[in-house]
Simulated assay, not measured.
Amino acid sequence: MHNDIKKALEVLHAGGVILYPTDTIWGIGCDATNPEAVKKVYEIKNRVDSKAMLVLMENPNRLNSYIDEVPEIAWDLIDTNDQPMTLIYPGAKNLAANLISSDGTIGIRITNEEFTQNLIQRFKKPIVSTSANRSGELSPANFYEISDEIKEAVDYIVEYRQEEMEKCKASSIIKIGLGGEIQIIRP
Rank of each mutant, 00 (worst) to 15 (best):
E149K: 06
N34H: 10
I44R: 08
M1Q: 12
Y42Q: 07
P35D: 08
A52E: 04
G104H: 08
L99P: 03
T33S: 15
L9K: 07
L56D: 04
Y144T: 04
Y20G: 00
I44C: 01
E43R: 15
A92F: 07
D82P: 00
M57L: 15
L12I: 13
I18R: 02
A14I: 02
D79M: 12
I146W: 02
P84I: 04
L178I: 07
E145Q: 14
K125H: 09
N98P: 11
T33H: 12
K124W: 00
R122N: 09
G15D: 12
N3M: 06
N34V: 07
N64W: 02
I67K: 03
G91Q: 07
K169E: 10
D49I: 00
I108R: 01
T80Q: 13
K167M: 12
T105Q: 05
I157D: 01
I174Q: 10
E36N: 15
L119N: 11
I127F: 04
P71Q: 01
K6P: 00
I44V: 15
K7T: 05
Y66M: 11
L56Y: 08
L54N: 04
C30W: 02
L12H: 09
F143N: 01
Y66H: 05
I173Q: 02
G107C: 08
G177F: 11
I67D: 01
G180M: 12
E36Q: 14
S172Y: 01
V17C: 05
I67T: 07
C30S: 14
V38T: 13
I120M: 08
N94W: 10
Q121Y: 14
L9W: 07
V41L: 03
W26V: 00
G177Q: 06
M1A: 11
Y89G: 09
L56I: 07
Q121C: 06
I174R: 12
T111G: 02
G29E: 05
K124L: 07
T130P: 14
I108L: 05
T111Y: 07
I120C: 04
E10V: 03
E113N: 15
N112F: 00
W75I: 05
K45A: 03
G91H: 05
V55R: 07
I108W: 03
E72Q: 10
P71T: 08
Y160P: 00
A153H: 11
K6A: 06
G91V: 13
E164L: 14
K175W: 02
Q121M: 08
Q183F: 13
E113M: 08
P187I: 06
K6Q: 12
N94Q: 04
K93N: 01
Y66L: 06
V38A: 13
D31F: 10
T24Q: 13
I18A: 02
F123R: 06
L119V: 10
I67F: 03
K175P: 04
T111L: 10
E181H: 13
M85Q: 14
D31R: 14
E114S: 13
I157M: 01
K93Q: 10
P90V: 11
N61I: 10
E69Q: 14
Y20E: 03
